[in-house]
Amino acid sequence: MQLALEATMQSVQGAERTGSELDDIDALVRTYRPRLLRFVTFSIGDQDMAESITQDCFLKAYNGRANFRGDCSVNTWLTSIAVNLIRDQQRLQKFRFWRQARATAIDITDAASFLPSAECSPENRMLVQEKAQQVQTSLLALSEKQRTVFLMRFIEEMELSEIAAATNMPLNTVKTHLHRALKSVRAQAGKTI
């Protein structure tokens, strides 16, 4: 009984904490924008549209912050909103996806030079960059669902149950998509994974 009460109190406190976090849109954007932008960008392959969707996502989160129950992290909640916005855009066919967007492919080649130098020697940095590009290229071969769950798991580090909830897919379907995605990435990345 005591344990249940403590759990409820913790849940309420967590919701209050994240609730106040959501009230400050400036801090919200500052804290979560890079991760959210990354997720959206590598989900759709269009940098400009990704910025627009990310912006919409923050506005939607801010306007609907009263609906946040605090049963998942703010990042997971924002990612779920982003998934829905991406899906809406896909339905409306307002923008081009990976195959068409190859001409304006996202260039992450310079990004490796911004990695913390303490972690990376020049040789390691080159290796990291090479591997990252291999994975990026391999995303092209994935279906939309495979790409979404792959990014959620390996970029956003979401739990399988969280991915299932965010995508409205059964857990086993999520696992199947993830296995196929991983297999494809492994094949594309030259069996190095």
Binding site: P34, L37, R38, T41, I108, F114, L127, Q129, A132, I155
Partner: peptide
């Protein structure tokens, strides 16, 4: 690697 590089890119 992909995670680190893309986060650096996004930041």
């Amino acid at each position: 690697s992909f995670k680190a590089v893309t986060l650096a890119w996004s930041e």
